[in-house]
Design a protein around this nucleic acid. Structure first.
Length: 504
RNA sequence: GGGUCGUUAACUCAGUUGGUAGAGUAUCUGCCUUUUAAGCAGAGAGUCACUGGUUCGAGCCCAGUACGACCCA
């Protein structure tokens, strides 16, 4: 095979890879297919453990249960005429024993060309070794994929985080915890879907590419559609489309999908991240708080077995009823230590923001200043679950105003572990009020606020047809998975986090 | 954007005051039929991230660059 020979000739290959390529060339010379796809397994390692973990050796050998397994060789101990190795498939790992006297000299010689990392099929039965370990006795062997690159060292594993993220495939092979986290992620998302489906919500898909990026305050990614010759944005939120569906008569809808925000990268932020948004007609933000407690505690139990979960040394209690509900302005006073005469006075508020080292932009409204104080003084201290409600109207352009006080909205954000986990509100369904709020946002955008909302005429037109009163919520799925897997960085819960291209 | 730290063999890591580049694992060779971080004997393996500077001499000191981690904005 010319390609392999070319690979073999490359000087820059390190010795280990070169040796493996040479070995592969020898196999080819003996007419051995390196990548056959004719082996079929009839069981998996998890199944063997489930059925036989309690069975004693005599019973196993008497039964001579015969089966075919396949997986990756992840360790290898050879004694000459007998070899032990561990085989790993998607569900687990099991020891395999291969002996010359069982396989025959020729087959055993071929088997001995196996490297750690090769993917192999094994036919055989079970027995127990002297130490009692459940082990497969090989009667037939077929290599189905030759590995050219050595795996990381077995004892320390792969530690270099950059390599773990760039070559996640290697991380998944050698780091059991990584595999576990992503299996948990899938289980968490499935449980959210089950929960919402049971409550009568319908999953939908709305545009990821939008002409007007709405539904959140964030900088969008821009792209261009060639055939239509038009600018498009990657969505920052699905909100305005999901609410159009409320107008259309789907009274309970949700979407779990990616959002894109053209902002900094940190342990809490990836440019593309996954959000659950759901909208519920004939409900308000207080109904949402109840539903949220129920949903989070159920998902926590599913993922971790308990509604009290450990996170970075704290025990976070997600049990229904354990959550605190506190008004935004009360949280400024009681947790942030900001007196009402300070937070309600524009100049005093501005002075305090500056004192705390935050910039104040010209023309910024009182609500925005209060939000900055909240971010600095309150948010980091909200370790246990807190619903902070009645956000200022200035910073809540899509939320319904409070009936008694038009300066605040029937909106809450959910905080725990010092971070925002969700944002929710009773929806603004008055088209006249909505148009006015958009117009205020446009003024802020013109004044230089890149994150202010765009005017969306079609959305206002939809509201003019009449949207049922409703409440809606967005939950950051990555952060939820971080919480339930005790992960400090968002990159630990995203399979392929965004990194700069490798040098060279 | 700013600060701190890191980058040495495929992997995990040492590297003294600036003076010939080290270990374990992995790999290769030999021995070995119940091991499991198998063992024993031997061998090979390096653009010390990159570029420049200081120096008789730089993995080590200095400057810059790239990538990453953490903190701050």
């Amino acid at each position: 095979m010319p390609m392999l020979e070319a690979l073999q000739a490359k000087d820059e290959l390190n010795a280990v890879i070169k040796t493996r390529v040479e070995k592969a060339c020898q196999l080819l010379d003996d007419d051995i297919h390196l990548y056959p796809n004719d082996f079929r397994r009839d069981t998996e390692i998890e199944t063997l453990w489930a059925r036989f973990s309690e069975t004693d050796g005599e019973t196993l050998e008497a039964a001579e249960y015969d089966f075919a397994l396949a997986g990756r060789v992840v360790s290898y101990r050879s004694f000459g005429k007998v070899t032990f190795f561990h085989l790993q498939d998607r569900g687990g790992k099991i020891q395999v024993y291969a002996a010359r006297d069982d396989l025959g000299t020729e087959a055993y010689q071929l088997f001995k060309k196996t490297d750690i990392g090769d993917i192999v099929g094994v036919r055989g039965s079970l027995f127990r070794t002297k130490t009692g370990e459940l082990t497969v006795k090989t009667r037939g062997f077929r290599r189905v994929s030759k590995s050219m690159r050595p795996l990381p060292e077995k004892y320390h594993g792969l530690k270099d985080v950059e390599t773990r993220y760039r070559q996640r495939y290697v991380d998944l092979i050698v780091t059991p915890r990584t595999k576990e986290i992503f299996m948990m992620r899938t289980a968490i998302v499935r449980e959210l879907r089950d929960f919402l489906d049971e409550k009568g919500f319908m999953e939908v898909e709305t545009p990821m590419m939008q002409a007007i990026p709405g539904g959140a305050m964030a900088k969008p990614f821009e792209t261009h559609h060639n055939a239509l010759d038009m600018k498009l944005y990657m969505r920052i939120a699905p909100e305005l489309y999901l609410k159009r569906l409320l107008v259309g008569g789907f009274e309970r809808v949700y979407e779990i999908n990616r959002n894109f925000r053209n902002e900094g990268i940190s342990t809490q932020h990836n440019p593309e991240f996954t959000m659950l948004e759901f909208y519920w007609a004939y409900a308000n933000f207080e109904d949402l708080m109840d539903l949220t407690e129920e949903m989070f505690s159920r998902v926590a139990v599913k993922a971790t077995g308990s509604s009290v979960v450990p996170y970075q040394g704290e025990q976070i209690d997600l049990s229904v009823g354990a959550w605190t509900r506190l008004a935004f302005h009360d949280s400024l006073e009681k947790i942030g230590g900001v007196a009402p005469e300070v937070y309600s006075d524009y100049e005093k508020c501005k002075a305090l923001v500056k004192e705390k080292g935050e910039k104040v932009v010209e023309g910024e409204k009182l609500g925005k200043l209060q939000a900055k104080l909240f971010d600095i003084l309150v948010e980091p201290r909200l370790i246990q679950p807190h619903f902070i409600y009645h956000y200022p109207t200035d910073i809540s352009p899509l939320s319904r105003r409070n009936e008694d006080n038009p300066e605040i909205t029937d909106r809450f954000e959910l905080f725990m572990t010092g971070r925002e986990m969700a944002n929710a509100f009773s929806e603004l369904n008055d088209p006249v009020d909505q148009r006015g709020r958009f117009e205020d946002q446009v003024k802020e955008k013109e004044a230089g606020d890149e994150e202010a909302h765009f005017m969306d005429e079609d959305y206002v037109r939809a509201l003019e047809y009449g949207m049922p009163p409703a409440a809606g919520q967005g939950v950051g799925i990555d952060r939820l998975v971080m919480l339930l897997t005790d992960s400090a960085s968002i990159r630990e819960v995203i399979l392929f986090p965004l990194l700069r291209p490798e040098a060279g």
